[in-house]
């Protein structure tokens, strides 16, 4: 029965939908998990619930506490939704060049947004959040990049849902941000179906982050385990936008721009296969990216815009 006590009960159990029109071969099937169907609008609702539940279990989060988190958007929005219902305050440290809609959503949910220099990307947001946490240790930083609950959320829910709905899966293609989705789903699938291959798609954020002073400012999330992956691909901004359009034009799916990158990676992976089944992830819907002009403006204009505004 589709009747629930809380909006949080709707997190997870998202549908798989065929992207067959985007496959280069009828022998290779591509299915996408529509994470934009989560109530907060993205895959990050899963980790928001899991990280807050885990922190409550160990007594790290007390009633009325303030949560502090670096996020370029979706994790912040998921946390804001959960925090609102559970009575926590939330401060999100976010690069100042992310799409305006993310900031608007955070503010609507009552989160306090602290901006970090956009030129330093998420690395800069992480550094600023760490500094703020040191200044006021009463704030609780859940730190998605290092929190095992991020991986657990996907190991416990996303992975099992994929195997339940698509037992014939041969390859999982996911996007690399914190690496939580790839680590959790990848570990679960490999444990239960050892032949499954796991492919990571890296969004081209490294090209957009212009403000790193040295390579030592780089960042590899502590939860990332390179052994879970079999292949890692990079997809360029222009391709990401093109595939975001193809998702809409050929499949009727209005998805965020990172979905375009991931699906481009899934299609490239499909080109290397004679037959088989790929499962991929569409992390969010297109709503938060309307201001990018991705569907309406000239491709060159959107590509140039993507060098200034972080759509990933």
């Amino acid at each position: 029965m589709a009747r629930f006590d809380s909006i949080l009960d709707l997190v997870g159990d998202t549908p798989l939908v065929a992207l067959h029109p985007l496959s280069p071969s009828p022998e290779v099937r591509i299915w996408a998990k529509l994470e934009g169907q989560n109530p907060g609008g993205s895959v990050k609702d899963r980790i928001a619930v899991e990280m807050i539940d885990a922190a409550e279990r160990v007594g790290q989060l007390m009633p009325g506490a303030t949560i502090l988190e670096p996020s370029s958007g979706n994790t912040g929005i998921g946390l804001a939704m959960v925090a609102r219902l559970r009575g926590y305050r939330l401060r999100v440290v976010m690069p100042d060049n992310v799409s305006i809609e993310r900031r608007q959503l955070l503010e609507i949910f009552g989160a306090d947004v602290v901006l970090s220099p956009g030129a330093e990307g998420s690395n800069g947001a992480i550094r600023l959040a760490e500094k703020l946490a040191t200044e006021d240790p009463s704030q609780v930083m859940l730190f998605q990049y290092g929190n095992p609950a991020n991986v657990d959320a996907h190991y416990r829910t996303t992975g099992p849902e994929i195997l339940r709905d698509c037992p014939e899966v041969d390859v999982f293609v996911g996007g690399l941000g914190t690496s939580g989705t790839l680590m959790g789903v990848g570990k679960y699938l490999k444990e239960h179906k050892p032949d499954v291959r796991v492919v990571a798609v890296e969004p081209p954020s490294g090209e957009l982050v212009q403000g790193l002073r040295s390579l030592e400012d780089g960042f590899v999330p502590p939860i990332f385990d390179p052994a879970v992956l079999d292949r890692k691909l990079i997809v360029r901004p222009r391709e990401s936008i093109e595939w975001t359009r193809r998702l809409l034009d050929d499949c009727g799916i209005f998805a965020g721009i990172s979905a375009g990158a991931i699906v481009a990676g899934a299609a490239k992976t499909a080109e290397t296969m004679e037959r088989g089944t790929i499962v991929t992830i569409i992390p969010d819907g297109g709503w938060k990216y309307l201001s990018s002009g991705a569907w309406t403006d000239d491709l060159d204009v959107v590509e140039e815009r993507a060098t200034r505004i972080n759509f990933w």
């Binding site: 990050k44 996020s71 370029s72 979706n74 994790t75 990307g121 998420s122 690395n123 992480i126 998605q144 990049y145 996007g175 690399l176 941000g177 914190t178 939580g180 990571a200 890296e202 969004p203 081209p204 954020s205 490294g206 090209e207 982050v209 790193l212 390579l215 400012d217 780089g218 960042f219 590899v220 999330p221 390179p226 992956l229 079999d230 292949r231 890692k232 691909l233 990079i234 997809v235 490239k268 990933w312």
Partner: peptide
């Protein structure tokens, strides 16, 4: 080209004429 060399043959990854090698700093997302 598109592939991270850590999942190919690392620094021993063979290159062909016209290949594009891209060097990028490790950055976070999320």
């Amino acid at each position: 080209n598109d592939d991270d060399i850590r999942y190919l043959d690392q620094l021993d990854t063979k290159v062909a004429d016209g290949d594009v090698i891209s060097i990028l700093p490790a950055v976070a997302g999320g």
